Computed example of a mutant assay.
Amino acid sequence: MDKIYKLMFYGCLIVIEFLATTTQEIKPLEHSWDKANHFIAFMTLYVLLTLAYKKLSIKAKVLILLAFGVQIEIVQSFIPGREVSGFDVFADSIGIGIGIGAYLLYKKRLNNEK
């Protein structure tokens, strides 16, 4: 099952990188609140990273995902029409926090069902 979670994690990582760096207009995303896109993406990434790499500490997962978020902002600084935003990294952080909470609730629920 870990292989499936790893495939899902890296698949999401690639899709998020593409969406964050493309110059193409993607209509559903253009009309949504940008910060919501960030925290939904990073919440999903946190949960998938946790399922794929159970032995990583929370701190390591947070650092990996924040580094990914900062990397996106750096790449966007070189793309015409895109800009760097510290608020985007803040939204990524909120998403990671929500992901931590969601995973802990999921894990607690699983343990209660046993």
Rank of each mutant, 00 (worst) to 15 (best):
Ile4Trp: 08
Ile4Leu: 13
Ile4Thr: 06
Ile4Asn: 02
Ile4Asp: 01
Tyr5Thr: 09
Lys6Gly: 00
Lys6Ile: 04
Lys6Met: 02
Lys6Pro: 03
Leu7Thr: 11
Met8Arg: 00
Met8Val: 12
Tyr10Leu: 04
Tyr10Met: 03
Gly11Leu: 08
Gly11Asp: 04
Gly11Ile: 03
Ile14Phe: 14
Ile14Cys: 13
Val15Asn: 08
Val15Tyr: 11
Ile16Ser: 14
Ile16Tyr: 10
Ile16Gly: 06
Glu17Trp: 12
Phe18His: 14
Leu19Ser: 05
Leu19Trp: 06
Thr21Pro: 02
Thr23Lys: 07
Gln24Tyr: 14
Gln24Met: 15
Ile26His: 11
Lys27Thr: 15
Lys27Glu: 14
Lys27Leu: 11
Lys27Gln: 14
Lys27Cys: 03
Pro28Lys: 10
Pro28Gln: 10
Pro28Val: 09
Leu29Ala: 13
Leu29Glu: 08
Ser32Gln: 15
Ser32Ala: 12
Trp33Cys: 08
Trp33Leu: 13
Trp33Pro: 03
Trp33Glu: 15
Asp34Cys: 04
Asp34Trp: 08
Lys35Trp: 02
Ala36Val: 15
Ala36Pro: 08
His38Met: 03
Phe39Pro: 04
Phe39Ile: 06
Ile40Val: 15
Ile40Phe: 14
Ala41Ile: 08
Phe42Val: 12
Met43Phe: 03
Thr44Asn: 10
Thr44Trp: 06
Thr44Phe: 10
Tyr46Lys: 08
Val47Asp: 09
Leu48Glu: 00
Leu48Cys: 11
Leu49Cys: 05
Leu49Val: 00
Thr50Ala: 12
Thr50Gln: 11
Thr50Asp: 04
Leu51Thr: 01
Leu51Tyr: 06
Leu51Asn: 08
Leu51Arg: 13
Ala52His: 04
Ala52Leu: 11
Ala52Phe: 11
Tyr53Ser: 07
Tyr53Ala: 01
Lys54Leu: 09
Lys55Ala: 05
Leu56Met: 07
Leu56Lys: 05
Leu56Cys: 04
Ser57Gln: 03
Ser57Met: 09
Ile58Phe: 09
Lys59Glu: 11
Lys59Thr: 15
Lys59Asp: 07
Lys59Pro: 01
Ala60Pro: 03
Ala60His: 04
Ala60Arg: 13
Lys61Ser: 06
Lys61Tyr: 03
Lys61Pro: 02
Lys61Met: 13
Val62Arg: 07
Val62Cys: 13
Val62Leu: 05
Leu63Ser: 14
Leu63Thr: 12
Leu63Val: 12
Leu63Lys: 07
Leu65Ser: 08
Leu65Tyr: 07
Leu66Ile: 15
Leu66Asp: 04
Phe68His: 11
Phe68Met: 12
Phe68Ile: 14
Val70Leu: 14
Val70Ala: 14
Val70Phe: 10
Gln71Asp: 15
Ile72His: 02
Glu73Asn: 09
Val75Phe: 07
Gln76Pro: 10
Gln76Val: 12
Ser77Leu: 04
Ser77Thr: 03
Phe78Met: 10
Phe78Trp: 13
Ile79His: 04
Ile79Asp: 00
Pro80Gly: 00
Gly81Met: 09
Gly81Phe: 08
Arg82Thr: 11
Arg82Tyr: 13
Glu83His: 09
Val84Ala: 02
Val84Lys: 02
Val84Arg: 03
Asp88Tyr: 12
Val89Asp: 00
Phe90Asn: 01
Ala91Gln: 00
Asp92Ala: 02
Ser93Ala: 15
Ser93Leu: 12
Ser93Glu: 06
Ile94Val: 15
Ile94His: 01
Ile94Glu: 03
Ile96Asp: 00
Ile96Lys: 00
Gly97Ala: 10
Gly97Leu: 06
Ile98Arg: 05
Ile98Tyr: 10
